[in-house]
Amino acid sequence: MFKQKTACIHQGNVIQPIIWRNVLNKQQNTRKFTSAAEDLKSENSVNEQTHTPPPTPPNPPNPIPAEILRASLPFVNQYGWTIDTLAQGAKTLGYPYISHGLFPRGGAELIDYFLEDCRIKMTNEIFDKMDGLKVHQKIRFACITRLNLTKPYIKKWSEALAIMAQPNNIPMPIEHLAKLVDDMWYLAGDKSADMNWYSKRAILATIYTSTELYMTQDTSPDYIGTFQFLDRRLQDSATFGRLIGEINTFADFAVKSTFGILSSKGIGRF
């Protein structure tokens, strides 16, 4: 029997699979009327085909996109976040070179996969190692774990940043960043349910992205400079948070004392 293999042609935005068996069957049909004996044989074979249950294909009929993306990652340092990388990844799995047509957004889809993959890896790595740490230590630990996952690709990361900054790709990294920061705060045991929910996530997002940007230009051994940069940013945010808290307390005091003076003069009751 013919091995069932498929390939894909990318036409505009539609991906159309070609099933090789159908193509070959068509060729067989054109050859069918050469002699009566062959005719009978082929009829028999057709009957056999209809009566036996269809065998399960040895390979999955469609190349699995996630598998190709995963196989592509080792080629990133060589080819960048490009279609070539995807093609190489498909090749290692034994799929045809043109399988990269499955990813109409090209390198952006590889980045999409990479960010999601890293986030899941980070949560799995740290969630059971958080006991006994303080909140800022937990956040620092999460950031370092996540940065370490980007480390192997850091030479090509500025290229990825450029791809993510393209107008049609912008929503993708923002969504990933929001999810990442949300996971970090969740794992750190954050219980805020008011505007702090937003401010904490916004501050952490700026810290994380700036540290990642620093890391792309970092030449210090073992990226010590990056982690020092991260510590400095975290410290800044802590002092900033304390300042906000102090301003709040002062404003509260000022408002309360104003109303107190007013009520002592007999105006209103607050």
Binding site: I64, P65, A66, E67, I120, N124, F127, Y186, L187
Partner: peptide, 12 residues
């Protein structure tokens, strides 16, 4: 992506 991410560890 209509696929199963096999070999992935459990998530949180």
């Amino acid at each position: 992506y209509n696929s199963s991410l096999k070999e992935e560890p459990k998530n949180y």
